[in-house]
């Protein structure tokens, strides 16, 4: 299969990078204020992906379960940070970090381990060629879902302070007072993945399937893997969003069911 793949040379990457540079120049000229961010993000992509390539190369040769667990942990910790960074008003202290990381951990890891053991069953089940890409795709999507969910929840709780307090004053319990916000926040977090499922194959060819086809796999094999991954990602994102919304909403109230917006960090 690999003989059919055209190997990319540094020159190929340099040519594609020049397009991004042209874009950065254009946005600078238009004063959109994103050119710096484009360049930095592009450099991060290069560094992070090359690093990942080296790490995976090394890991695939050794295939030691402890090393794989370590990499999985590092991925989770970075995803936890990203979730926090993408919120306008995350929770103060350890909660800001822990809430997203915990929801992602419970959801993504459970589903990844389930998929590896029950569905794909490589030997051993933690075979890094399967475990790491699967977990990576789970975490990447779950991260977006959890970040959207929590950002929606905390931002809107902040803006709806008067309404939430008024509902509490009329004797509603916290769950009833914030119920609508919780439902909306979960829906917001799940919309991207629902859209992705609906559009898959018609409007977009998902990245993983593209990769497999480029790597010389039969399109049908690629499609089957993509379906599996889509379902796992959807379940992972959905469960994590529900979990994050529930824990987050609970944290917005104290044991006397008072709205505690002082537990949120001011933006900036």
């Amino acid at each position: 299969m690999s003989e059919s793949v055209i190997q990319l040379q540094p020159l190929h990457l340099a040519i594609s990078a020049s397009l991004v540079i042209v874009l950065a120049l254009l946005t600078w000229h238009l004063r959109l204020g994103v050119s710096g961010r484009i360049v930095i993000a592009a450099m991060r992509t290069v560094l992070q992906l090359l690093l990942l390539g080296f790490v995976l190369d090394y890991l695939f040769n050794i295939s030691h379960p402890m090393l794989i667990a370590l990499l999985a942990l590092v991925m989770l910790l970075i995803a936890g940070y990203e979730v926090m960074a993408r919120q306008q008003r995350p929770f103060k202290g350890l909660w800001g970090y822990g809430l997203g990381a915990l929801s992602m951990f419970i959801s993504s890891f459970t589903i990844a381990i389930f998929t590896l053991n029950v569905v794909i069953s490589p030997d051993p089940w933690y075979l890094p060629q399967y475990a790491i890409p699967l977990l990576g795709m789970m975490l990447g999507n779950t991260m977006t879902g959890v970040a959207l969910t929590l950002d929606y929840l905390t931002k809107n709780a902040w803006q709806s302070r008067a309404v939430l307090e008024s509902r509490l004053l009329l004797g509603e319990d916290w769950r009833s007072a914030i119920g609508q916000l919780m439902r909306d926040s979960v829906r917001t977090g799940m919309i991207p993945i629902i859209n992705a499922m609906a559009a898959a194959g018609i409007i977009s060819i998902p990245g993983m399937m593209t990769g497999q086809i480029l790597a010389g796999n039969s399109p049908l094999t690629a499609a089957k893997y993509q379906i599996l991954i889509m379902f796992m990602i959807t379940a992972g994102t959905g469960f994590a969003a529900v979990l994050a919304s529930w824990i987050g909403a609970k944290r917005l109230f104290d044991n006397r069911q008072r709205l505690r917006l002082d537990r949120l960090r001011p933006p900036g």
Binding site: V163, G171, D173, Q257
Partner: peptide, 19 residues
């Protein structure tokens, strides 16, 4: 229980809220 207490001592805010 907080909801019970709040129903018992009814507070009317200066600015009413509707949702």
């Amino acid at each position: 229980n907080p909801p019970t207490w709040r129903k018992t001592v009814g507070l009317l805010s200066a600015e009413s809220q509707w949702w």
